[in-house]
Computed example of a mutant assay.
Amino acid sequence: MPCICMPLLAEVSHPFDPVAAPASIQEITVTEPRKGQAPAVLKRDEFHFEFRRSFIDPTFAAVEADIARVEQVAWENYINGNKSPVTAKAGPEFEDPDYDLSTEWKATRDSLLAAETVQKNPATKSRVLLICGSARNDGSCPGEMSKTYRMVKLAAATLAASDVEVDLLDLSLLTSGYDQHIYPCKGCVSTAMPLCHWPCSCYPNHGQRQTNDWMAEIYEKWVAAHAVIIMTPVYWYQTPGVLKLMIDRLVCADGGNPDPSSTHGKDAEKAKQLELQGWPYPKHLAGRAYGLVVHGDVAGVEGVRRGLSDWLDWMGLVDAGALSRLDRFVGYYESYAESHLALDKDLALQQEVRNVASAVVNAVAEIRAGNFEPPDAELHRPRPK
């Protein structure tokens, strides 16, 4: 019989440590975080290798000494875990007034409160956030604009004609904007909902060089809007990665904790205790209207549209009617090279996109006038999670 040889533990990137696994459930408390997955901290030479990846262009040779000095500071920030280097006392509006709160997080949170005040003011114009979920634009490798962007412009013109303010969020800037980032969700909510802060406090993390996180601005766009219209192509039966990054980072808008001092930042055990005491799962974006346009060329449009509708429904947003949720093919099984021409010819689809925008305008008007309330608004949710 052949021998099935297992590699030595030293050869395994993340070996399973039986010591990290409890022998029985009785040996751990309910709130004790499970440990044993985190990668090892980089050694100094490993850090040097990773840090210098950004400076391989020969033109940086002229400032080698300066880069070396910056690298040493970055190393010290990394090894010391300087996630939020600038803090201030939280103050009396927080559960723990003496907690050292990130000033960057506090600035984002204050901007959301200000945006919400304007959004709820009946004297302000209605505002719609138009989101282009395609990763393609003519300023990056594809060399051509996306059909999604063209549909966004159709909707924008319809909204503007209805005297509605339009805020465009083009997620393709992640592929063409300089140092533009939406960092991935770290899954804090799956440890305990109160560990997921509203707005997200996982970023920036200066020690890990995770900065310039676009979500701080994007949260404000969502809060300021009375409605959101998402337009997206289908990539392999799913939403494009640029859109999914934003969706995942919006988990904090659905049940997120607006007070990081209550968990002393990212104290997992405190968060678990707080959740077990009974968590209300606040829906920070509920009541806004939404519309959807999903397009593809072969398959997947219905699945993506349903997935997005289910997500927005769960968040407490309100669909603007059947005509506001559109899924269509553009150039079905035709060449990619002629796809823009196919959109030019499909006048019915262009009108359907306009109809999505018009339906959203009508829904916003009804919601803001107090004439619309979902039939299930007063029902008790036995499963708030």
Rank of each mutant, 00 (worst) to 15 (best):
5 C>S: 15
7 P>Y: 14
14 H>P: 07
18 P>N: 09
22 P>R: 15
27 E>K: 15
31 T>F: 08
33 P>T: 15
34 R>P: 10
34 R>E: 12
36 G>C: 14
46 E>G: 13
55 F>L: 06
58 P>C: 09
59 T>K: 11
59 T>Q: 09
62 A>C: 08
66 D>Q: 11
67 I>D: 09
74 A>I: 15
76 E>H: 15
80 N>C: 13
90 A>K: 04
92 P>V: 11
93 E>Q: 12
94 F>K: 13
95 E>W: 05
99 Y>R: 06
99 Y>V: 14
101 L>G: 10
103 T>Y: 04
106 K>T: 01
110 D>F: 04
112 L>A: 02
116 E>C: 08
117 T>W: 00
118 V>D: 08
120 K>H: 12
126 S>P: 12
127 R>H: 03
129 L>C: 10
129 L>H: 07
130 L>H: 04
135 A>C: 05
138 D>K: 08
139 G>E: 15
143 G>S: 02
151 M>Y: 01
157 A>C: 00
159 L>W: 00
168 L>Q: 07
170 D>A: 03
172 S>E: 12
172 S>N: 13
173 L>Q: 14
175 T>L: 11
188 C>S: 11
189 V>C: 00
189 V>L: 03
190 S>R: 13
195 L>P: 11
200 C>L: 09
201 S>F: 13
209 R>P: 09
209 R>D: 10
212 N>M: 08
213 D>Y: 02
215 M>S: 02
218 I>M: 05
219 Y>A: 04
222 W>N: 04
233 P>A: 03
235 Y>Q: 11
238 Q>G: 10
239 T>I: 07
239 T>V: 10
240 P>I: 08
247 I>W: 14
248 D>T: 09
250 L>T: 07
257 N>K: 13
259 D>L: 15
262 S>H: 08
267 D>K: 12
273 Q>Y: 03
276 L>S: 12
277 Q>R: 14
279 W>A: 12
279 W>G: 15
285 L>H: 05
285 L>I: 06
289 A>I: 13
293 V>W: 00
293 V>N: 00
293 V>D: 00
296 G>F: 05
298 V>Q: 14
301 V>I: 10
302 E>A: 10
308 L>F: 05
309 S>H: 11
311 W>S: 10
313 D>H: 08
326 L>Q: 06
331 G>N: 08
337 A>K: 07
345 K>I: 03
348 A>Y: 01
351 Q>P: 02
356 V>Y: 01
359 A>M: 01
363 A>L: 05
366 E>H: 08
368 R>H: 06
368 R>S: 06
370 G>I: 10
370 G>C: 04
373 E>D: 07
377 A>V: 14
384 P>D: 03
